[in-house]
């Protein structure tokens, strides 16, 4: 019969390095640590934009398969985040924003994080392919590969354009959502891709403006570190100005209505106002406020897209409820 104490003894003797010994839970990572590896806050936005792509796509997808598609997007994004944390563990330990992550804290071994990320990434792509379709699976794989190899490994430490090009990885979810329903791509999801792509630089540069010291210490060539704050502020305004007429475009393409167009225009104007406030540089808290607003911007934009499309989807998603509604009317 096995003795539990002996198991623990062998575990400790075999595996726990000095960093894990210092960490809590006797060096054993908790479920919370593995959840943290998946970057749940980033995942929320990714899932939401994927859901928007899925809902505006023409055609119908069984609700269960739609839920599986969203789950795969979430797991895939989380897996890419775990691999990113594995690769960036050295700079994460230097930056105050990231030093409490599980790897720099010694709660999760780097190799465990890598294995966790790779397994989940493969799992999400396979499940998407088998349950939904292989176009969506290929796009999910491409997004993960882009995030890990193009952004994390290649661009992040080499160029101030890291998040301009690397931001494409975060723009994939609406494409994946659309492809999950249609099995193909079209102009409308590419516009959604462009919206997220152009939203990413001002979003990250707002963060980099009030974390410049952090990035400089870690040797990450973010635009404020390399080109200075003034040039960054001008670039941020430029991106918000390009985004202003682009965001309402889905309404003109017929995948959204007037509600979405109005919300997109209003949010776009507010985003430009934030960029102007940052450019004037009178309030030191302006970049932080713009960073917060940029998150709200994308949430509200995709929420408007979903709300605008939802009434048309009701008969497909819940035929019984729609019939009841018709009878009551």
């Amino acid at each position: 019969m096995s003795d539990g104490t002996a198991d623990i003894g062998s575990d400790i003797a075999l595996g726990l390095g000095p960093a894990r010994e210092q960490a809590g839970a006797g060096g054993e990572a908790s479920v919370r640590d593995y959840v943290a590896l998946l970057k749940p806050r980033v995942m929320t936005l990714v899932v939401f934009s994927g859901l928007a792509g899925l809902m505006v796509a023409p055609g119908a997808l069984h609700p269960l398969l739609a839920a599986v598609a969203v789950l795969c997007i979430a797991i895939g994004a989380g897996a890419a985040g775990a691999i990113n944390m594995w690769y960036d563990r050295d700079i994460d330990a230097v930056m105050s924003r990231t030093r409490s992550r599980p790897i720099p804290q010694g709660r999760v071994e780097p190799a465990e994080a890598l294995g966790f990320g790779v397994v989940l990434s493969l799992f999400s792509v396979m499940l998407m392919g088998l349950a939904v379709n292989w176009t969506a699976a290929a796009l999910l794989a491409l997004a993960n590969l882009f995030y890990v190899f193009v952004y994390t490994v290649w661009l992040k430490r080499r160029t101030p354009h890291n998040i301009v090009i690397g931001g494409a990885a975060g723009a994939f979810p609406p494409l994946i959502g659309w492809a999950a329903v249609t099995g193909s791509l079209a102009v409308a999801p590419l516009v959604l891709f462009l919206i997220v792509f152009l939203w990413t630089p001002p979003h990250f540069w707002a963060l980099a403006l009030y974390r410049t010291g952090d990035y400089a210490r870690a040797g990450v060539p973010m635009l404020p570190v390399v080109a200075g704050a003034e040039a960054t502020r001008r670039q941020m305004l430029l991106y918000t100005l390009v985004l202003l007429p682009l965001a309402p475009l889905p309404a003109l393409l017929g995948v959204a209505g007037a509600v979405y167009a109005g919300v997109a225009l209003l949010l776009g104007l507010l985003f430009v106002a934030c960029a102007l406030a940052v450019l004037r540089n009178r309030d030191p808290k302006a970049p932080k406020r713009m960073f917060g607003f940029s998150i709200l911007y994308l949430f509200l934009l995709f929420a408007a897209l979903i709300v605008d499309r939802a009434p048309g989807l009701l008969p497909e998603l819940a035929p019984g409820l729609a019939l009841l509604g018709g009878w009551a009317a």
Binding site: G26, E28, S30, V31
Partner: peptide, 23 residues
């Protein structure tokens, strides 16, 4: 030499491992 775990750390170790197994 690795530091032996205290009683409290052993309990936390058990708890974390059990949580992971259940997850």
């Amino acid at each position: 030499q690795q530091r032996p775990l205290s009683e409290e750390e052993l309990k936390a170790y058990y708890r974390a491992k059990r949580g992971k197994n259940l997850a």
